[in-house]
Write a protein that binds this DNA or RNA. Structure first.
Length: 825
RNA sequence: GCCGAUGUGGCGGAAUGGUAGACGCACUCGACUCAAAAUCGAGCGGGAAACCGUGGGGGUUCGAGUCCCCCCAUCGGCACCA
């Protein structure tokens, strides 16, 4: 198109134009990519800062939640960069897992093809966000170059005895046709698909996370939100107590208790229905009853079991155990309120002091013996309505009577029994070993071969990766698809070279995410999982993501790091120095966004309508970032209008306004107090108040533009600092402004400005005056006014004087720059 | 039941123990316009006022949204874990 005389376009006057994000955003994204502006250089200057957002699953569509999770960390990473840090901010894809396989089954397509095409489209969507992510480091966990190291780690774990195979009851999801780790069973149902899990007796691979249970309870090298720590601590479930042996007709039976001090109140034993000794202990007379009970308990799903909580059921075995101190006989029962998976699968029941044992004893008419009595309490009668688990003195316990319940008496009981070899202090955890194997195709093959001669052998390092066989379609048999590929299964033994078979299971995808943050250090390294020379980039300084991974991913990656440390791969105890969780953006209706509810907000639509910078700003502004909340479709008008006004502050026509009285001092105060606030708010991740402060400053600048302060050197300073403060939040408009102002380079490589502390406080302050603690007026005084000056000014204020009339002044408070309070009587 | 959060205008929210409601949305009025949108300007907790107001009740303090104690409600996690 050529310029015509009718429509002269003065290209040197874009300043008269309105802010148009669509005219500038793509341009800058392209230019930044071309120039490699965000390429991380580990040899670059400045202290390193590793910022990471939990990598997404390549579902194929980037939704507003991904934006919410990434924009704020991006703004913060940009700010750190401007402050002189050498910032690593990478991104990848958590690409193995069931959705690909399900899509593959449904449409008979290759999960790999489906996944990589999703990654491609999601990367493009991601790049529209305008982040400083260094895309040159991107990888997907389904890349053989990545999962090779999963296999390498597995074989290393195996050599160290941290990966082992054992038989036992496991959780099985009938829908997903695979076993699940305990962490992936929520309320008795599959964490992924909600199907109630079944228990199956299977031989499976585990990782020995329980070896690290105690260390995982120690959070001293990682700053995680209280609720995450609480959830993990809860999950690990440490209980300090003792194991105590009761003699039975078929040999000694060890029970675990946290209350050895109540042992004289133990009036019966209870075994879990699955306990190995039940059959032996059951007398012939009781056998039909017990077997029926065990069969019924076995049929119950976990979901049904949980619904029955509180409702006690059980049967008597017909046998008795000998009380280790009293020497008397106590009956042995079977009940499903005792879990075979916890402690020893059997308990000594102390109905007087345990709610569950009490309910059970009442229901079946078993003895209740009080052994702890609260100070001043009446003895527990036969008609007691509840157990008592509070503090008190030991009673009815012979030599222990009169000791305080708790530590002292616990130690006394253990000490006595320890001598006879029938008790020892013991700590039990709820945490189980991590069940690793999955009976699925789209994952990392377990690198083990089974040789008839040499048993399970790890695949040697030089033969890794064990690549997944080519996709040949699925059958509906429910068997592992790998199992069906005979050609793939048949291999040779690494020891004797004889015929052997591959393990046909794949790894839990949480293996992939347990160490991916290390891979970003050297994503293309084919000699190590990560280059040891880059280990100085560890740990991740700020890790952000959703709370849904509070236990699963975070606990597993903490465990992985501790093993890596013990292997000598890192000196860090923790992968993440600092963890914060963003909230969730809900639909307009306050419900979780979902296609079925029709309340989904599409970021691509928003970008088309408002531009990237507006969407970024609104996501920062909508709520405190760690809280989140419902999407307000009208709310985005605020940020949209704001950026229009920002543009006009720099390039708008200068209209003569009403007599604005913004002084140069006001201007400097506005700029430097805002700078101080924004700097502090970035530090504490308070993104919504950053935007608010920038908006407030814009309001000042709009007025200043019409005041005598316009055009002064202070005005130029203000624009410069404002431009720099905009950069982390709204990178495109900030860059455009930078260049329109005729400045060189990129605004994003500039230094964050320094606050002039003197300018950030006012010389004259307006403070409230209280009389008797109630605000009655305000006075404008010098910041450095003395108490006498301040009080004189306060008394002179008519609104204040009115309330002082006829009153005796008791006390006068003056906090410089804050408040005056005159206490009267 | 245990653990962890959270409760402030119509709405999202702000506030180192120091003038509660910054900033924004919505709304109202005005300017511009033939008109509308956009934009710009003004107002916006309740109450006529005295005053009352940060879930409720106590307390500490000259002064409490903020600190302490006791409740209530909502959300999240775990849940027969001995």
């Amino acid at each position: 198109m050529t310029q015509t005389d009718e429509h002269p376009i003065n290209i040197h006057e874009p300043r008269a134009e309105r802010y148009n994000p669509h005219a500038i955003e793509q341009k800058w994204q392209d230019r930044w990519a071309e120039e490699g502006l965000y390429r991380f250089d580990e040899n670059g200057p400045g202290e390193k800062f590793y910022a990471l957002t939990m990598f997404p699953y390549p579902s194929g569509n980037l939704h507003i939640g991904h934006w919410y999770a990434n924009v704020a960390p991006d703004a913060r990473a940009r700010w750190m960069r401007m402050r002189g840090y050498n910032v690593l901010f990478p991104m990848g894809f958590d690409a193995f897992g069931l959705p690909a396989e399900n899509a593959a089954i449904k449409n008979n397509v290759d999960p790999a093809g489906w996944t990589y095409s999703n990654i491609e489209s999601m990367t493009a969507q991601f790049q529209r966000m305008g982040t400083m992510i260094d895309w040159s480091r991107q990888f997907a966990t389904c890349d053989p170059e990545y999962y090779r190291w999963n296999q390498w780690f597995f074989t290393e774990f195996f050599k160290r005895g941290l990966a082992y195979k054992k038989g036992g009851l496991v959780n099985w999801c009938p829908k997903d046709q695979t076993v699940l780790a305990n962490e992936q069973v929520v309320g008795g149902a599959c964490e992924r698909c909600g199907t109630p899990v079944e228990r199956r007796n299977l031989n499976q691979w585990y990782l020995r996370i329980t070896d690290y249970a105690d260390e995982l309870l120690d959070f001293s090298d990682t700053d995680m939100p209280e609720r995450v720590r609480a959830m993990q601590t809860n999950w690990i479930g440490k209980s300090v107590g003792a194991e105590i042996v009761f003699d039975t007709p078929v040999g000694p039976e060890t029970v675990f208790t946290t209350r050895p001090d109540t042992i004289m109140g133990a009036t019966f034993l209870v075994l879990a229905p699955e306990h190995a000794k039940v059959a032996e202990l059951t007398t012939d007379e009781q056998r039909p009853t017990v077997e029926a009970y065990i069969a019924a308990a076995g049929r119950k799903t976990d979901v049904e079991r949980q619904q029955d909580v509180g409702e006690k059921s059980g049967v008597f075995t017909g046998s008795f155990a000998t009380h280790p101190i009293g020497g008397h006989q106590v009956p042995i029962w079977v009940a499903d309120y005792v879990l075979v998976t916890y402690g020893t699968g059997s308990i000594m029941a102390v109905p007087a002091h345990d709610e569950r044992d009490f309910a059970f004893a009442r229901k079946f008419g078993l003895d209740i013996t009080e052994v702890i009595r609260a100070e001043g309490a009446e003895p527990m009668g036969a008609d007691a309505e509840a157990s008592y688990s509070g503090p008190g003195m030991i009673v009815n316990s012979g030599e222990f009577d009169g000791l305080p319940g708790g530590k002292v008496s616990i130690d006394a009981v253990i000490e006595k029994l320890e001598g006879a070899g029938v008790a020892k202090a013991k700590t039990t955890y709820r945490l189980r070993d991590w069940l690793l194997a999955r009976q699925r195709y789209w994952g990392t093959p377990v690198p083990i071969v089974y040789c008839p001669e040499h048993g399970a052998q790890p695949v040697p390092e030089d033969q890794l990766p064990v690549k997944l066989p080519e996709f040949k379609g699925f059958t509906a048999s429910g068997q592992s698809p790998l199992k069906l590929d005979r050609e793939w299964v048949q291999t040779t033994c690494p020891v004797c070279n004889g015929p052997a078979e591959r393990d046909t299971d794949t790894m839990d995808t949480f293996v992939d995410s347990s160490w991916y943050m290390y891979r970003f250090l050297s994503p293309h390294d084919d000699q190590h999982p990560f280059d040891p020379a880059k280990a100085n980039l560890l740990p991740v300084d700020l890790y952000t993501g959703g709370i849904e991974h509070a236990i699963l991913h975070l606990l597993y990656s903490r465990f992985w790091t501790k093993v890596m440390r013990d292997m000598g791969l890192t000196t860090q105890n923790e992968p993440f120095a600092w963890l914060r969780n963003q909230g969730i953006i809900l639909g307009e209706d306050g419900e979780k966004m979902s296609k079925s509810r029709g309340n989904v907000v599409d970021p691509d639509d928003l970008v088309r309508e408002y531009g990237v910078d507006t969407v970024r700003t609104y996501l920062l502004f909508i709520a405190p970032w760690e809280v989140g909340g419902p999407w307000d479709p009208q709310g985005i008008n605020g940020p949209s209008k704001w950026l229009g006004r920002v543009w006009n502050v720099f390039f708008g026509e200068r209209t003569a306004g009403p007599d604005e009285a913004v002084t140069v001092a006001d201007l400097r105060y506005g700029i430097h107090s805002t700078l101080k606030k924004v700097t502090g708010d970035f530090d504490r991740l308070s993104f919504n108040t950053i935007v608010a402060a920038l908006m407030e400053l814009t309001n000042i600048l709009v007025r200043a533009r019409r005041s005598p302060a316009y055009g002064t050197p202070e005005w130029d300073e203000a624009l410069n600092i404002f431009n720099l403060m905009l950069a982390p939040v709204v990178p495109h408009i900030a860059e455009e402004i930078w260049h329109e102002r005729g400045l060189e380079g990129s605004v994003h490589v500039q230094s964050w400005p320094a606050t002039d502390e003197a300018a950030a406080v006012r010389d004259t302050v307006t403070i409230g005056v209280q009389v008797g603690g109630k605000v009655r007026g305000q006075v404008s005084i010098s910041k450095t006014a003395t108490q006498d000056e301040a009080l004189a000014a306060a008394r002179a204020e008519p609104d204040v004087a009115r309330f002082l009339e006829g009153k005796a002044v008791v006390k006068e408070i003056y906090v410089a720059g804050r408040i005056i309070n005159i206490v009267v009587k």
